[in-house]
Design a protein around this nucleic acid. Sequence first.
DNA 1: TCATTATTTCAAGTATTATGGAAATATAGA
DNA 2: TCTATATTTCCATAATACTTGAAATAATGA
Lengths: 107, 107
Amino acid sequence: MESVVVVKALAALAQSSRLEIFRSLVVAGGTGLTPSVLAESLGIAPNTLSFHLKELVHADLVSQERIGRNLIYRAQYDRMNAVLGYLTQNCCQGQACLIEAASRCDC
Amino acid sequence: MESVVVVKALAALAQSSRLEIFRSLVVAGGTGLTPSVLAESLGIAPNTLSFHLKELVHADLVSQERIGRNLIYRAQYDRMNAVLGYLTQNCCQGQACLIEAASRCDC
DNA sequence: TCATTATTTCAAGTATTATGGAAATATAGA
DNA sequence: TCTATATTTCCATAATACTTGAAATAATGA
């Protein structure tokens, strides 16, 4: 995974509204959530929410699917996992690491 | 772990120079690295490097120790792991998750 | 103490980002 | 087609962040 992509993903998550949005989507799982639901539950104005969702989609951390009048946003678990993995890669030059495992989601 | 702390940590990592610095420190492990070494190996001006290191220290992702004329910076693995864990917490409402493990470093 | 090396702080300029209001687009149903 | 709902886009403003050059601080050794 390229460092530029990782920076983009981290930047997308490094903002309180977006982190909340992403966390909501992670918890929601495969069902996903609509902007309306997110806007209401998080108390974010629809245009601001749209801006942040776009940011997350551009970072490939979230996917978008239209179903009728609604849009469904979902967390992209594989991309999230790749970003997490990047941070620990080659940790301690491979030595002294007891585990290389935890906090990955395989939904 | 509080969301504010996580945002701060993610913001600290969401910048190409800092991500490189942090990755170098993660790879270096317990030995740590001095600003001189980092500045040379990454090609970052010393004052710019200092700015970014401070950012990482403030986010608690990196620790600082003085040894004689040199400062030694080290990755804070526990904090990094906590941040990674935050992102996957309660993933998919607990259902359908095969593993809750990977990409954590236990140096 | 003085000079040197290591590192940080300060100030300033530019660029990027977040937010809000208003308007535009898309879809569905009457 | 008309209307309502859902969502996005556009624009302007305010705040924040990155980088650079110059100066300051810290620690060591001569």
